[in-house]
Amino acid sequence: MEEYFILFDYEYRRIVLFDGSNKLKIIKLQVGNPKKLSLEFNVHIKHYNYHSKRKCVKYCNLILNHCWRFRTKDYGSRDNLSNCCSEFNSFQIMYSTNKEPLNPYSMTLKQGLQHLQDQLKIRQQSINGEDKLIMFKCNFDECKPQIQSNMNKNVLLNDIYKHLPYYPNIQIHWKIDFMFMVSYKHTISIQRAEIPKIISNEDAIIPPNQKSTFNPLLYKCDIHQLKIFLNKTCLTKEKSDNNLKLLLHEVIKNNCLCDLIPKEILSTRKKVIEQQIGYNKENEDKLILNDKILNDKILTILNELKILYHDDIHKKMGYPLELHHICA
């Protein structure tokens, strides 16, 4: 695969490629009719994506006139290249910021819409992996010029636009609404494990020679583990390095506590909660966490954190996410 500088010569409908290492080396690609002021309707562009397993890279490529293949680094570069190549064709359809060269004498309205749908599918797949069509609709009344809503889709584009000035050397605007999603075959099928409602106190005993650590993502049934940890921490007077305290302190310090509190109690409980947890702007270690504070109905984000942290898919990932990752 070689890299080239590219120049578009629209007067003679050709592409000039300059070798990146040797600019004296020139390659000319005759894309369409080279005669000046002539018409051209056979420019064809097809998008496709290529995944390099060896380099773990996804390329956004296109094929011009069924024979020349171009590779770009991202979908934006491919869109720009595709739009530039579309200018070689006399008749163009523009949707959003993209252009497509079509032959109005051989392509019907239905075929034109299908071609745009195929191109959009490749584009969305290259952006975020969405390859399954959910919705595709052309708003005929918002097209420029408008298309009759009861128009027969099997009619040639020539029959729709032949009355326009300067036809067929024109650019038409179609208003397309579309939506894609990632197909289920690319997702991981899992089932959420049942959360135990009761855990015996024997399982919660911490051996004397084992350093106690606090997992901030405990379930309500594990509250006794939290109490054991807090009691032991108070006895040993160890400085708390609790990630949850650091997180909550930073949230409150940046005036974002309201994001963790339900709207119905926000106006009356914000200051109360700050007092209950012993918030001190200068010292996060003075935060107090108890079963009243760890209430799913007050600090609602805690419940979501617990669910995400203990989710089977997080387990399959090897528990790589820290608190700040999950909250983000």
Rank of each mutant, 00 (worst) to 15 (best):
I288K: 05
L299P: 13
R123H: 09
Y48I: 10
A204L: 13
T213F: 05
L29P: 04
Q125N: 12
M1N: 14
I228H: 07
I188K: 14
D74N: 15
N231E: 15
T300D: 15
N242G: 01
E130G: 02
S200E: 07
H47C: 06
N209S: 08
F229T: 02
K144I: 08
L113E: 11
N242C: 14
D159G: 01
L289F: 11
N231A: 15
M151Q: 07
R69S: 11
D19Y: 09
S106T: 12
Q191T: 08
Q125G: 02
K23V: 07
S38H: 00
H310V: 09
Y167D: 06
H314N: 15
L260Q: 02
N80A: 10
I45F: 00
K197C: 08
D141E: 14
L17T: 10
V31A: 05
I298N: 01
D241A: 13
L17H: 08
L289I: 13
L81A: 12
I223E: 06
T72V: 07
I122F: 11
C327N: 10
K316N: 09
Y279Q: 01
I277H: 02
Q225E: 10
D311K: 08
F18E: 11
I190E: 03
L24G: 05
M1G: 05
N152H: 04
T233G: 13
N283R: 05
K315I: 12
E194Y: 06
N169V: 11
S149A: 11
P145D: 12
C256E: 15
Y184F: 09
I301V: 14
S86A: 09
L244C: 08
K245M: 07
L246P: 01
L305R: 00
P165N: 09
Q146R: 07
D118Y: 06
S149Y: 06
Y219V: 06
Q276N: 08
P262A: 06
H310T: 12
I122L: 09
I147C: 01
L81D: 13
V16P: 00
S240M: 07
E2M: 15
L323H: 03
N209A: 14
N22Q: 04
K292H: 09
S86N: 07
G278V: 04
M179T: 01
P168E: 03
N89W: 03
F140Q: 05
I122W: 01
V251Q: 00
Q225T: 05
E282D: 04
L287C: 03
Q92I: 11
K162E: 06
S267A: 14
P320Y: 14
N290P: 01
M181H: 00
G32V: 01
C56E: 08
F180L: 04
E282Y: 03
I198Q: 07
Q117F: 00
D259Q: 09
E100D: 10
L17G: 14
I127S: 00
L109M: 13
Y10M: 10
G76M: 13
Y48C: 08
